[in-house]
Simulated scan of single mutants.
Amino acid sequence: MALPSVRALLKQREASVTASERRIIAVLLANYPSAALTSISQLATAAGVSDPTVHRLVLKLGFEGYPEFQRALLAEVDARMNSPLSRLESSADQPHTEDTQQAMLGSLTLAIGKTAELASREDFERTVSLLADPQRTVLCCGGRASGFFAAWLAVLLSQIRPRARHVEPSLERGSEALADLSPGDVVVVYDYRRYQESVVQFARAARDLGAHVVLFTDEWRSPIASFADAVLVSFVQSASPFDTKVPVVAQTEAVVAALVQRASVDAKNRLKRIEALRAGRVAEDA
């Protein structure tokens, strides 16, 4: 269940606080959200109350202090500014190019270029090394907007190595996959803003079980980045109001290409066996 916004909290508590605290709420709602982005003293002066009165109100709202109150407000503003709807609404007032196709393709080219320019070679090589070991089980997972990339990676990996599969990153529905993990196995996670808590929890549980965590994420970085073994960052902003995942596809393809190069003979033999089975015949010895 989503937590109420700061605005909603202010309105909910307006009738149950003191008269001085109501003045603070009135100032905050009248100049929302800018009134709360000043210092505590400036807000107190605007409402005609003391600094401790502002502090008491913030505590009543459920925050540990004014800094945490401001962080919650900034996170709320950021989430709204970066939502597809708000970005679509803001773009309505901007002049549009006649050639939308060229503008979009150009912005995607820039996103891929920036991703390549700032890519970490160390994290890429670490990812390839982990996935190249056929003794490691590999679980691939992602959130609502990125799960299909994890499924696609699992399909590609299964063509060139054993023990790779797609799982749902949920402690409730993916616990069986976690139960089968051994220390040293690999969990590949795709997680992009707005980061999904169930995905974060699943990745952390895998890490606690001794698995290596490889993260595909955006430039703002999922919380998983704080404990991942390798982090592959892509730049997702484009001419569209929706974050682009084109660089993610490119990164995924690059990892698979590197894996094929590293284990070309094994990959070729495995593909021969798979093709033979699809054709309904027993594969010849390689």
Score class of each variant (00 low, 15 high):
R221Y: 08
L259P: 03
Y32Q: 03
V27L: 04
L171R: 12
S170K: 08
A15I: 13
L232H: 00
L43T: 03
V188L: 10
V188Q: 04
R173V: 04
A72R: 10
D51Q: 14
R281H: 11
L28V: 01
E64S: 13
K245R: 15
K268Q: 15
K272A: 11
S20N: 15
K11P: 01
N82Q: 08
K60M: 05
L9V: 08
D185K: 08
T45G: 13
V128Q: 09
A206Y: 10
R13M: 11
L43W: 00
F148Y: 08
A254L: 12
P223D: 02
P4W: 05
H96D: 09
Y192T: 02
V265D: 12
L88D: 11
V231C: 07
L181A: 07
R136C: 11
S238Y: 03
R7I: 00
L43F: 05
Y190M: 07
R204K: 12
P52R: 14
P95E: 10
L59A: 14
P95H: 06
A150G: 04
E176A: 14
L59Q: 13
V282W: 01
R126L: 04
A79Y: 00
A254K: 03
H55Q: 15
E253F: 14
L259N: 09
P169K: 11
S50H: 13
F242Q: 13
S175K: 06
E14F: 14
L130Y: 07
L73R: 03
R136Y: 14
R270N: 04
G48S: 07
S20T: 12
A250M: 14
S107K: 07
Y66V: 05
L118K: 10
I25Q: 02
P134L: 12
A205I: 12
V256H: 12
G143C: 12
Q261L: 15
A75M: 00
I160Q: 08
T97H: 15
N82W: 07
A177M: 06
A119W: 04
S20L: 15
K272P: 00
T97R: 15
S234Q: 04
I24Q: 05
S222G: 04
D123R: 02
A111T: 04
K245D: 02
P183M: 10
M104G: 01
A276M: 09
N82F: 10
L131P: 00
I40H: 06
V188K: 05
D229Y: 02
L10N: 02
A103V: 13
L108M: 04
S234A: 10
K245A: 06
E219M: 13
V265N: 03
A154S: 05
T115S: 13
V231D: 06
D180T: 10
L171P: 03
S50V: 01
R87L: 10
G106A: 13
S175W: 13
T45F: 15
S182E: 11
V128T: 03
L74Q: 12
P95Y: 02
L156P: 00
V77D: 02
V58N: 07
E275F: 14
F202G: 00
L61H: 08
Y66S: 05
L29A: 00
E21R: 15
